[in-house]
Design a protein around this nucleic acid. Structure first.
Lengths: 229, 229
DNA sequence: ACCGTAACTTACGGAAGCGTAGGGCCCCGT
DNA sequence: ACGGGGCCCTACGCTTCCGTAAGTTACGGT
């Protein structure tokens, strides 16, 4: 692999390495373009292998560029990772919170479930990353903090509903955890076995969360969608 | 750190390193003893830092022993890890399945929830390890395979109940995922904020799973326990 | 008392992989 | 036409860590 022993052979933008994406490219991008491209490549690799198993060189190579470029833009692997995670969390939270419009609790659940599944569908890589644990953080990983964030919102919604209905609002935290765990893990499962459609998964999610096992509806429907099939 | 330049100074079982567990020991154990000890130490470290962040040397040092001993017993880091994970999964599965005695679905849920929380309480390190993702396995981590295992049993139970009640048994997989996710993530949360007692957490877990949000009981009780407080 | 074996040890060799030093091109403004 | 800055490259130093080779001590059977 060592071409050029002492012969430095410096200069000229590397060999004509054909890229994974097909295009032979040796494109000289603008700073912003390269940055965005690196974020995309990094996101894909982090999703595939996880943080530790992904090397900076790998990212750079897949972007058709050399390592220092990555350091130029993000100051290191963790820097890039942080930006990727931040963007994904923001996207997910935006999608979920912006989906919460109606006031009826059952509709809220339905909307939240649909929003998360939509995120899983459209940003699978991001979801895979968020689901993994963090690089260094021991107790409170990124997943934990994501869960906290989401669960916090759910808790808030639940808290209001709880006190309105006469339940102990202090329990809202716990129920929030349950609901989030239910939805999150189902999303993870759905990502692999892409069995039913998004709407169908959401339907059953709501069916369990709202009705419980004792009162499952035989042919559940979504309130906000027309029909199921 | 380089004591003894060329002076090999070999021989004699290491320095008088005082151990983390207090005892100064320089104990020469039997093979089996050492093996068990290494498993305990490894489990603790894997739980604390995760697989990648834990080095073989760290494990050996904490066990008051040098690296090759670990290799002697387990052939490497992954070997040790595999045994740890296998044992924990077996323990968890045993605890859960052996708890499933009664036939009534609500009681089954209650027993399963109690069993898992008992595992979380008694084997926190193991649970932390199982919750993390695997070293190399990309798509199907250990957590995923654990989930599959557990969810498989749940699915089996659910499937019977579903067809008995006139639901589509094919949906049992999905509902199993939901239930497992709910319980698993709640367990994870409970591990950090050790807020309510085990029985109380289980009570509310069952409350949500069985009754759903629409029919939550105000003061839920466990069926198999006498009282809650 | 001896010797084989089980239980350990101190080094190495070597592979990754992070981050940086020290440049070369090329465009664009003057 | 020339210089500065943006964009990018080829090394290289350095740390960490895995896994192994080769040799040392203790212990138990004969």
């Amino acid at each position: 692999m060592q071409r050029g022993l002492i012969v430095t052979d410096v200069g000229h933008y590397g060999g004509m390495t054909t890229q994974a994406n097909g295009a032979p490219h040796r494109t000289r991008m603008t700073g912003k373009e390269r940055r965005e491209q690196l974020l995309e490549v990094g996101r894909a690799l982090f999703a595939e292998r996880g943080f530790d198993a992904t090397s900076v060189e790998e990212i750079a190579a897949k972007a058709g560029v050399s390592k220092p470029v990555v350091y130029e833009h993000f100051g290191g692997k963790e820097g890039l990772y942080a930006v990727v995670v931040d963007r994904e969390m923001r996207t997910l939270l935006d999608m979920v919170t912006s989906a919460l419009t109606s006031g009826h609790p059952r509709e809220l659940i339905e909307q939240a479930a649909l929003a998360l599944l939509e995120y899983v569908e459209q940003h699978s890589d991001g979801f895979r990353i968020l689901v993994r644990d963090s690089p260094v953080a021991q107790s409170t990983g990124n997943f934990a903090s994501l869960i906290s964030d989401i669960a916090g919102r759910v808790e808030h919604l639940l808290g209001g509903e709880f006190s309105r209905r006469g339940y102990d609002p202090a329990l809202a935290v716990m129920y929030a955890q349950m609901l989030v765990g239910m939805v999150a893990l189902t999303g993870q499962w759905w990502l692999d076995a892409q069995q039913p459609s998004r709407d169908e998964v959401a339907t059953h999610l709501v069916n369990l969360a709202w009705n419980g096992l004792s009162g499952l509806e035989h042919e559940p429907r979504l309130l906000t969608r027309k029909r199921i099939s």
